[in-house]
Design a protein around this nucleic acid. Structure first.
Lengths: 351, 351
DNA sequence: CAGAGTTGTCGAAGCGCTTCGCGTAGAACG
DNA sequence: CGTTCTACGCGAAGCGCTTCGACAACTCTG
């Protein structure tokens, strides 16, 4: 920078002001400085800038968990956030250890990041508490209990459950299961899981549907087991809604039980994505604009950092239920006494 | 830091040496300093450290393209790299604009990152050239033409194609199609695509297989169209290998043509992942240890940065072909004259 | 026991930028 | 025409660390 100043015949500070635009500089000076910058192929040093200005021009995004195989929707959040960040000339720092509030504030305390984006929020999230009390800027992809003063973008899973239920009710189903997230997540207070359960259990009866709440991890094995249990113990249940990839195991169990989809059993996934089309039958479900959501979360945070936005922005993203091939009218006959049912029972017994 | 020094009754520099361990400090001093650090809850400032030491303790990872919906294997690379980075107390900077060599070197030139990880490398990659000539440390997930002095980790796609071909040959198939990456990627010189083509075309004849090279993007629509064309023009072709998600469109086209998998047509995907199990029929294919690969790429770069490793490390990761349900013996009868064939022709004509 | 080497500590000079306060000159004002 | 503004440019003081050279106090050597 000193070289630039010398070459342009101006003071060091003038170069800085040309670059930052924080004070007015005469046209003449500006041009000379810019010319010198061009000639010397100068690039400002990020760390020096961060040190002097106190802002790193970086935001941190925490992955849910170190080893976690991210589900596609979360990966898309990240891609969206990355894009927004790059577009605003910020950098995006990726970090694991999402569950440790200490590690999260540390990044900001160390001046490595100016703000934080959190994913996978809990209903009562210590990380949010920590960030709030430390006064660090942040935004959420997800929601928490107390949303005052918080900027977030979240998918309206509750609404999606409701729409799914309504669709199934319209098709004549009177007993529907919800394959909610893993029980650990529920007890941990994972907001999306809580909302799913609450909406499901309050809304189903109003639609004349008996709700059966099942929890299962998204691992095919777990969901398969849970689904198998459900199918044998609840013969009246003719449809299921999954909150995620539980549909994999569910479809497997249905196949094993020799139940055809959608003729004998309907399946809806609240998180489907492009994926859904590939399955046979193509999966009815909700496609979320996850890329947009990630972008939004990053933009909200950056706006907060640059002082553009002071009021918190709260986005609840809605999405349409895309009816594909895995849902159909409720079957007339009950499953309980058919030959198929007996076959299935035998199969399950043998396992 | 000055406060720490004062509280511990030592010089500023001593505190620094305690922290960095770059000079020996007496046990007594060290304890006093550490105690003071503890009491004051001090954390070193990243930017200041970066400025003074000239190293940002950060590595940059470039996403293939800003808007790209990452395919799962790439997302898993990122997760793995993130994990390794966090574990080594480095930070991982995510950035788009992967195709612009200028943007890539800029991050290092600005001191925001000490090194770079590149994905989706081309056979003749200007970004690699640039990084090499600028003398910036980097590692690759992928390969390039000239590998001298380069650290990389790559999946052995060539080997996977070979294994897949061998498997199909064993099953009696004598005419196999390869659904390679999109033609743009091939002309751009995307290494994986080139290798796939070369191995396919040289190896197939040796196994008594007539190779048909097809290029298609991974979008279901494109692959569907390409597959439909193939099925009608090449009745002898009884199996296909896909390099990615082209199997989606392929399976769709097979269904539309009323061809059963695997009885009448076999499908192998060279990139399958957990995904494969969910499909009906479950997809035969190769599962790659992508998380490990990402981790490795990051570790290699960090070792290079910390001076632990001087010699470049080159890993070609092999993986097994997992035979699931989508491959079977070559059908006895030719497709050309069956009733089904005529039906299919009618269907394709109507589209 | 002098000279050489070792170990532990300190002070100070940066790293490359931002930003504050001051100074100067011309414009605007009464 | 003197006075107050405004616009613009300059110098210098940091930002919070790292690191180098100097130095003091020892411990070895022969």
């Amino acid at each position: 920078m000193a070289q630039i100043a010398e070459r342009a015949g101006v003071a060091l500070s003038t170069v800085s002001y040309v670059l930052s635009g924080k004070r007015s500089v005469s046209q003449q000076m500006r041009e000379r400085v810019l010319a010198a910058i061009e000639e010397l192929d100068y690039r400002p040093h990020g760390a020096a800038r961060a040190l002097a200005s106190g802002a790193s021009h970086t935001i941190a995004l925490f992955l849910p968990s170190p080893q976690w195989h991210l589900v596609p929707i979360q990966q898309t959040f990240i891609a969206g956030a990355t894009q927004a960040t790059s577009a605003s000339d910020y950098a995006l720092l990726l970090s694991t250890a999402a569950t440790d509030p200490e590690a999260i504030t540390q990044l900001v305390a160390q001046g490595r990041a100016d703000g934080v984006i959190l994913m996978e929020t809990l209903h009562d999230d210590p990380r949010v508490e920590r960030l709030r009390s430390a006064g660090y800027p942040f935004s959420l992809i997800g929601r928490t209990n107390d949303l005052t003063g918080i900027s977030f973008v979240d998918m309206d899973f509750g609404g999606a459950i409701e729409t799914s239920l309504a669709q199934l009710a319209r098709l004549g189903h009177t007993c529907v299961a919800l394959f909610n997230f893993a029980p650990e997540l529920l007890t941990a207070g994972y907001t999306a899981a809580l909302i799913a359960r609450d909406v499901f259990e309050t809304r189903a009866p109003e639609l004349g549907i008996r709700p059966i709440h099942v929890t299962s991890s998204q691992a095919p094995r777990d969901a398969f087991a849970a689904a198998s249990r459900l199918l044998s113990s609840e013969p009246e249940c003719t449809a299921a809604i999954t909150t995620g990839w539980q549909f994999t195991g569910l479809l497997g169990a249905l196949r094993a039980a020799d139940l055809r989809v959608p003729d004998e059993f309907s399946v809806v996934s609240v998180i489907a994505a492009e994926f859904a089309e590939m399955l046979t039958p193509a999966l009815t479900g909700v496609d979320w604009p996850a890329f947009e959501a990630g972008r939004l979360a990053a933009e909200m945070l950056i706006d907060k950092l640059t002082g553009k936005e002071t009021a918190p922005r709260q986005h609840l993203v809605a999405a349409e239920l895309v009816v594909r091939e895995s849902t159909g009218p409720a079957p007339r006959a009950k499953r309980s006494t058919t030959k198929r049912q007996r076959r299935r029972a035998a199969f399950l017994g043998a396992r």
